[in-house]
Simulated assay, not measured.
Amino acid sequence: MTRKILVVDDTRNVQVMISDFLTGQDFTLLTASDGREALQVVHEASPDLILLDIMMPNMDGYQFISQLRRESSIPVIMITAKQQEADIIHGFDLGADDYITKPFRLRELLVRMRAVLRRAAPCEESKPLLSCGDITLDPGKHEVRKQGRVIELTPLEFNILEILLHSSGQVVRRADLSMRLMESGFTGSEATLKIHIRNLRLKLEDDLEQPRYIETIFGIGYRFVEAAE
Score class of each variant (00 low, 15 high):
residue 142 H to W: 10
residue 198 R to H: 11
residue 24 G to I: 02
residue 36 R to I: 10
residue 57 P to C: 08
residue 183 E to D: 12
residue 54 I to K: 01
residue 81 A to Y: 06
residue 145 R to E: 08
residue 97 D to T: 05
residue 36 R to V: 10
residue 123 C to V: 13
residue 167 S to L: 11
residue 36 R to D: 13
residue 191 A to W: 05
residue 213 Y to V: 04
residue 135 I to T: 04
residue 3 R to M: 14
residue 116 V to H: 01
residue 55 M to G: 05
residue 130 L to M: 13
residue 26 D to N: 13
residue 151 I to N: 06
residue 25 Q to K: 14
residue 45 A to Q: 12
residue 5 I to D: 01
residue 63 Q to M: 09
residue 164 L to R: 06
residue 200 L to G: 02
residue 126 S to N: 13
residue 78 M to F: 08
residue 37 E to K: 07
residue 124 E to Y: 07
residue 111 V to F: 09
residue 132 C to R: 09
residue 69 R to K: 15
residue 19 S to M: 06
residue 45 A to C: 15
residue 146 K to P: 00
residue 144 V to Q: 03
residue 40 Q to H: 12
residue 189 S to T: 14
residue 48 D to G: 02
residue 146 K to A: 09
residue 25 Q to I: 07
residue 58 N to R: 15
residue 101 T to P: 04
residue 160 I to K: 01
residue 158 F to H: 04
residue 88 I to D: 03
residue 4 K to N: 10
residue 143 E to G: 03
residue 144 V to L: 05
residue 38 A to I: 02
residue 87 D to G: 06
residue 169 G to Q: 10
residue 59 M to N: 06
residue 97 D to K: 00
residue 153 L to A: 04
residue 183 E to V: 12
residue 102 K to Y: 01
residue 74 I to Q: 08
residue 89 I to D: 07
residue 147 Q to E: 10
residue 180 R to N: 13
residue 127 K to D: 12
residue 30 L to G: 03
residue 183 E to A: 15
residue 225 V to E: 11
residue 214 I to E: 09
residue 216 T to G: 06
residue 32 A to F: 01
residue 116 V to Q: 02
residue 190 E to M: 14
residue 7 V to H: 03
residue 200 L to H: 02
residue 29 L to P: 00
residue 120 A to R: 00
residue 29 L to C: 14
residue 24 G to N: 11
residue 50 I to N: 02
residue 144 V to A: 05
residue 61 G to V: 01
residue 127 K to Y: 10
residue 32 A to D: 02
residue 39 L to H: 05
residue 210 Q to E: 15
residue 58 N to L: 15
residue 208 L to R: 08
residue 21 F to A: 08
residue 20 D to R: 14
residue 55 M to V: 14
residue 95 G to E: 04
residue 41 V to F: 05
residue 129 L to M: 12
residue 4 K to M: 04
residue 108 E to L: 12
residue 2 T to S: 15
residue 194 K to T: 13
residue 82 K to M: 14
residue 31 T to I: 10
residue 18 I to A: 08
residue 214 I to L: 11
residue 220 I to W: 13
residue 198 R to S: 14
residue 29 L to D: 05
residue 229 E to M: 13
residue 143 E to A: 09
residue 123 C to G: 09
residue 74 I to G: 09
residue 112 R to T: 03
residue 129 L to G: 11
residue 8 V to A: 08
residue 217 I to L: 12
residue 211 P to D: 07
residue 34 D to W: 01
residue 136 T to G: 08
residue 214 I to A: 07
residue 82 K to W: 04
residue 29 L to S: 05
residue 100 I to S: 01
residue 20 D to I: 10
residue 201 R to I: 04
residue 46 S to H: 11
residue 31 T to C: 12
residue 212 R to E: 15
residue 174 R to P: 00
residue 12 R to G: 08
residue 120 A to I: 00
residue 197 I to G: 03
residue 176 D to N: 13
residue 38 A to V: 06
residue 93 D to K: 10
residue 210 Q to G: 09
residue 76 V to W: 00
residue 37 E to N: 05
residue 137 L to P: 02
residue 126 S to V: 14
residue 71 E to R: 11
residue 179 M to L: 14
